[in-house]
């Protein structure tokens, strides 16, 4: 059963076509990598899927709801972590959690319970009252991800979540992504770290607004006879 479905999705800004008639679907519980060079259109496509941006044409369905017509229901079913840092730096750790949980309509008792679980899980018990700006970058990213899935969304959209983070922290971050996927949360993630593409169940590679390839990392490597995803990416870009 597909939890994200996009059909002939196009987004133009004036004469520039950022997303050019893409069609794809993502299955429940899948970790779906959305790859592409800067400016290939992946962030634009993701913003359309989240309802942040209206498509010029085409339609998309997320968590069973039409994004254009049932935006409110879509919004309640998804989590989002923006490319820029998506927490409030001048709020404390618990205040950020409380704020976003409240925004998603969670009850006070539930919030209190889950806050404890999350802080314990992250090992942040001592940082409860720390201002977010005082946390190291890797910690902030982990917290931001925890907040994005705090309300147990069906899908979480991650826009280059590991930008600027060291490799060890990135690996830990991906462990969290796996844990979320095991709980049934579908993960839609954009990245330009090609080693991260190997961690995804399936990846799509965007070039100039089009999806040039969509398959499991293993099949893509075999098809293009490439040793790793980086080589896959290079060959696709050169071919177009």
């Amino acid at each position: 059963m597909s939890v994200i479905y996009a059909e002939n999705l196009t987004k133009r800004f004036g004469n520039f076509t950022a997303v050019n008639c893409i069609t794809f679907s993502v299955e429940r519980g899948e970790i779906f990598g959305f790859l592409g060079a800067n400016g290939a259109g992946k962030t634009t496509a993701m913003r359309v899927l989240c309802g942040l941006s209206k498509p010029t044409s085409g339609r998309c369905v997320v968590a069973g709801y039409d994004v254009a017509r049932e935006t409110e229901k879509v919004k309640r079913s998804i989590g989002y972590m923006s490319q820029k840092f998506s927490l409030y730096e001048d709020l404390k750790v618990w205040e950020n959690i409380r704020l976003f949980a409240g925004i998603y309509g969670m009850g006070d008792k539930m919030i209190a319970l889950k806050t404890e679980q999350t802080l314990t899980h992250l090992g942040f018990e001592a940082e409860r009252n720390t201002l977010v700006k005082a946390l190291p970058l890797g910690w902030k990213q982990k917290l931001a991800f925890s907040v994005a899935i705090f309300h147990e969304p069906e899908v979480v959209f991650l826009d280059e979540p590991t930008g600027g983070v060291d490799p060890a922290t990135r690996r830990k971050f991906w462990e969290m992504i796996y844990q979320a996927a095991e709980r049934g949360i579908t993960v839609f993630v954009t990245t330009h770290y090609m080693d991260e593409a190997e961690y995804c169940n399936r990846v799509s590679i965007m070039v100039d607004g089009r999806i040039e390839a969509l398959n499991t990392p293993k099949n893509l490597r075999q098809r293009l006879n490439a040793p790793n995803m980086d080589a896959v990416f290079q060959r696709l870009v050169q071919a177009s």
């Binding site: 913003r47 409110e72 919004k75 309640r76 998804i78 989002y80 998506s86 925004i103 309509g105 959209f157």
Partner: peptide, 10 residues
């Protein structure tokens, strides 16, 4: 970027 997060939310 927090504005996007708010706009994505309900």
């Amino acid at each position: 970027g927090t504005m996007d997060v708010l706009l994505v939310s309900p």
